[in-house]
C-alpha cells in the first residue's frame, strides 16, 4: 500500500515550519511510523512527493520498543510513540508533527528539558535512605517506569510550558520517591506536589489514556495525595557506595 507521510518540518528552532510530503510503500502490517521514518532516511536520495530533494528527517529514536520514550510525536494529531504506532492503521495519509508543547529543535525533535527542570525544582530525589515496605513494592516499581516522553503533557489541558503546573511527568517520579521513602513522606516534596501538581490537575485523565507505558497515573496520584504530611527532611545522606562497602 502506498502511504503519504506528511511531516511538519522546521530547519531551526526559530525557523518557519513547513509541510513536506513523502511517499512510502509497505504491505507489512507490523511496520511502524518509526520504521517508515528510518526507511525514508535510508534512501540514497530523499525526495518529496514532487521530486524535490529533501534533507533527512530529524527525529529522536533509541530503543524502538516503547521503553525509552524518545520518539514521542503527534501522529495524526495524537501524541504517541513512533515505534508503537503501526503505519497501516492510519489510512493512506499519516500526518506527523513535533509535540506542540515543547520548543522545536528541528523537524520532529523537540527540547523536553523542561520535564527534568521541573523534577529538579520539585526536588525529586530521596532525602533519606529508601525503606520500601512490601505493600509499596509494586507501586514503586510501577512509578519507576515513567518514560519522560512528554505525551501526558502534550494532551493535558492544564499544562503549558513555563507555567506553574508540572503535570504527570513530574507526578510519577515524585510518587516513586515519596513511596520509596516510606513513612509519612517528605514535606518539602509533598508541598511542591500540592502546588505544582495536585492543585492544577483538572482530573480529565487524558494523560492516563495516552501514556505509552500504560501507567495508572490517577491511582498513583490518589495514593501519594493521601500520605500523611511528613517532616521537613534535611538532606542527611548515609548511603554512599563506599560506606556501603566498608560498613
Amino acid at each position: 500500500m502506498e502511504i503519504q507521510i506528511k511531516i511538519l518540518r522546521q530547519d531551526r528552532p526559530e525557523g518557519e515550519p513547513f509541510w513536506q510530503t513523502f511517499l512510502y510503500e509497505t504491505e507489512d502490517r507490523e511496520a511502524t511510523v518509526a520504521s517508515a521514518l528510518e526507511e525514508l532516511n535510508s534512501r540514497e536520495r530523499l525526495t518529496d512527493i514532487d521530486g524535490n530533494p529533501a534533507r533527512p528527517v530529524c527525529w529522536e529514536c533509541s530503543c524502538l520498543q516503547k521503553k525509552c520514550g524518545a520518539c514521542a510525536m503527534l501522529i495524526n494529531d495524537f501524541p504517541a510513540l513512533a515505534c508503537e504506532e503501526k503505519i497501516l492503521g492510519h489510512g493512506s495519509t499519516v500526518e506527523l508533527k513535533p509535540l506542540q508543547k515543547f520548543p522545536v529543535v528541528r523537524d520532529l525533535a523537540v527540547d523536553r528539558d523542561v520535564m527534568h527542570r521541573n523534577l529538579r525544582q520539585l526536588g525529586v530525589w530521596l532525602s533519606q535512605k529508601a525503606d520500601i515496605g512490601r505493600e509499596n513494592q509494586e507501586e514503586v516499581f510501577i512509578a519507576s517506569q515513567c518514560l519522560q516522553c512528554g505525551c501526558c503533557l502534550e494532551i493535558c489541558t492544564s499544562y503549558a510550558d513555563g507555567q506553574d503546573f508540572y503535570g504527570m511527568s513530574a507526578l510519577v517520579p515524585a510518587a516513586r520517591v515519596l513511596l520509596a521513602q516510606g513513612g509519612p513522606g517528605d514535606r518539602r516534596m509533598q508541598e511542591g506536589c500540592e502546588r505544582h501538581i495536585y492543585e492544577g490537575c483538572q482530573g480529565f485523565n487524558a494523560c492516563e489514556h495516552v501514556c505509552p507505558a500504560g501507567l495508572p497515573v490517577t491511582r498513583l496520584m490518589a495514593h501519594v495525595m493521601q500520605l500523611p504530611k511528613g517532616k521537613l527532611l534535611t538532606d542527611r545522606y548515609e548511603h554512599s557506595i563506599m560506606k556501603t562497602i566498608y560498613e
Partner: peptide, 17 residues
C-alpha cells in the same frame, strides 16, 4: 554492597518482606 546500595536508593527489587 552494590545491591544494598541500589536498594537504599529505592530500587524495588522483588522481595518477600
Amino acid at each position: 554492597a552494590v545491591i544494598r546500595w541500589l536498594q537504599r536508593l529505592g530500587t524495588p527489587f522483588q522481595n518477600d518482606g
